[in-house]
Measured scan of single mutants.
Amino acid sequence: MQIFVKTATGKTITLEVEPSDTIENVKAKIQDKEGIPPDQQRLAFAGKQLEDGRTLSDYNIQKESTLHLALR
């Protein structure tokens, strides 16, 4: 499925993911596309910060959802 990640600079990244993917996997995909190390990424959805060990389906993130990326 496709999801979107909006960066602090307003850029939107499109990612191909599975509901079973962990947040860690998603951060690795962002690193592949943007070169941002996962340990510098903070992802949020619906106002909640997402934890590495959880999956997209844990957070009820569905196709075409938009996550927000902040850098630490």
Rank of each mutant, 00 (worst) to 15 (best):
F4V: 06
R72Q: 11
P19R: 06
D32G: 13
I61S: 01
A28M: 09
T7Q: 06
H68C: 05
N25I: 13
V26P: 00
D39I: 12
A44G: 08
T9F: 07
G35K: 07
Q40K: 15
R54Q: 08
E16M: 13
R42N: 13
D58M: 06
K11L: 13
S57C: 04
L71Y: 09
E24G: 13
D58Q: 09
E34W: 10
K29A: 08
K63W: 09
K33V: 13
I36S: 04
E64K: 10
F4S: 05
I36T: 07
E34H: 06
T22F: 13
I23N: 01
S65E: 09
K33T: 07
L15W: 01
P38F: 15
R72G: 15
T22G: 04
D39H: 15
I23Y: 02
D21K: 02
L69K: 00
E16T: 12
K63E: 12
N25Y: 13
L69T: 02
R72M: 15
Q41W: 03
K63Q: 15
T55D: 03
A44I: 12
V5C: 03
I36M: 06
T9S: 15
D52L: 05
V17Q: 02
E51F: 06
G47T: 05
G53A: 12
K27P: 00
S57H: 15
S65K: 03
F45H: 09
G35P: 03
G47C: 04
K48T: 14
L67T: 02
E24T: 07
Q40P: 02
T9H: 13
L43H: 01
A44V: 15
P38R: 12
T9Y: 12
I30R: 00
T22N: 07
R72Y: 09
K48D: 08
K33R: 09
L56I: 08
T55C: 04
G35M: 05
A44W: 14
Q49S: 11
R42M: 14
T9W: 08
L56D: 00
T9M: 09
N25K: 11
A70C: 05
Q40L: 14
L50G: 01
Y59M: 03
T12L: 13
E34T: 10
L43S: 00
E16R: 12
D52K: 04
F45Q: 03
Q2K: 14
V5M: 02
L50M: 06
I23D: 01
E51H: 14
T55Q: 09
A28G: 14
K27A: 02
N25V: 11
D52I: 06
D52M: 06
I30S: 01
K29M: 14
I23L: 05
I30K: 00
K27G: 01
K11C: 05
A8S: 14
V5S: 01
K6E: 14
V17W: 03
T7Y: 14
D21R: 02
K11F: 09
L71E: 13
I13E: 01
V17L: 06
A8M: 09
G35L: 05
T7F: 11
T66M: 08
K6W: 07
V17Y: 05
A44K: 09
N25A: 12
I3P: 00
S65L: 03
N25P: 01
L67C: 02
Q49V: 08
A28N: 12
N25Q: 13
Q41N: 02
L69W: 02
K11A: 08
A44S: 14
S57R: 09
D39Y: 10
G47F: 04
